[in-house]
């Protein structure tokens, strides 16, 4: 069933680049995420953290 794909994967030179790309992608995403998270405004954080606490209060989208 897989023999058509198999043949191609085996004959690709340097197929090891693919897992390396995924690892680099992960670190790239992770570092970007860290950067974005530290740039977030405190007020925004406070707003969202309150969500479980006031389930019956005024909807937050009024503030947008």
């Amino acid at each position: 069933m897989l023999k058509y794909i198999k043949h191609n994967l085996e004959t690709i030179d340097g197929v090891a680049i693919y897992p390396i790309i995924s690892l680099l992608l992960f670190f790239g995403v992770f570092l970007t995420m860290l950067f974005i998270v530290f740039k977030m405004k405190k007020s925004n954080i406070d707003e969202v953290s309150q969500l479980p606490l006031d389930s019956n209060s005024i909807n937050l989208n009024e503030d947008e």
Binding site: V29, V37, M40
Partner: peptide, 28 residues
């Protein structure tokens, strides 16, 4: 945990920033 602990303790989650990093890193 992220809902019921804050709800029952009546305190917001310690760090929302950490929860973002926590989530994506964990599932990856």
């Amino acid at each position: 945990m992220y809902y019921f602990v804050p709800k029952i303790a009546n305190r917001p989650v310690y760090s929302y920033r950490l929860s973002i990093i926590h989530f994506w890193t964990l599932i990856f």
